[in-house]
């Protein structure tokens, strides 16, 4: 997730982009609650140890993002910079980036099985694999008022609906 906007943040850092403010909103799965994935592969059951591992990975990524955004404000490169994070209890099944209400990128998370270390022991788990996901771009142009524009609008509406209803504060 951090990788996805790292390039943009770098452009601000070297002065190629000069926005007045940066506001990032992040909606992620709540690893403190049982979900369909990640889960044990053997019996497809929830396992707090697996979620604790997922939470550590999520935390790292959120901290990296929050720090990178804050750094731009600290350096005086933007007037204001905020990162808000909320969690929901739906399983991680896809990723969606919406940029300035103008562009959207969507990628599927396939479910993969892999053996990881949980509480110091190997465990085969079913997990969302976002690393190699192809991001489909939706970038409406002026002359194109069709599908892409509608997609971005609906993606934004979906995000706001989640944000304002079942999402909760993220406690890092």
């Amino acid at each position: 997730m951090y990788n996805a906007i790292q390039e943009t943040l770098d452009k601000v850092r070297i002065g190629r982009l000069t926005p007045e403010s940066i506001r990032v909103r992040v909606l992620i799965s709540d690893m403190t609650s049982p979900m369909a994935i990640p889960c044990r592969a053997e019996d497809q059951a929830d396992d707090p140890g697996i979620r604790a591992r997922g939470r550590r990975i999520t935390d790292r990524s959120i901290h990296a993002l929050t720090d990178a955004v804050q750094e731009l404000a600290d350096l005086g490169l933007v007037k204001t910079a905020t990162t808000e994070v909320r969690v929901h209890r739906a399983a991680p099944l896809f990723k969606l980036f919406i940029i300035n209400e103008q562009e959207a990128f969507f990628g599927f998370y396939p479910v993969v099985e892999h053996t990881v270390s949980v509480d110091g022991k190997p465990m085969a788990i079913y997990d969302a694999m976002g690393k190699d996901a192809i991001l489909f771009p939706f970038t409406p142009s002026d002359e194109d008022a069709s599908n892409d524009a509608l997609y971005v609008e609906q993606a934004r509406a979906w995000f706001d609906s989640m944000w304002g209803t079942i999402a909760r504060e993220y406690a890092s």
Binding site: H114, T115, M123, A124
Partner: peptide, 15 residues
Amino acid sequence: EPTPYGREVIVAAQQ
């Protein structure tokens, strides 16, 4: 009954 870590051997070998 699955052997402890039997599945993990199969999956990790594949990985």
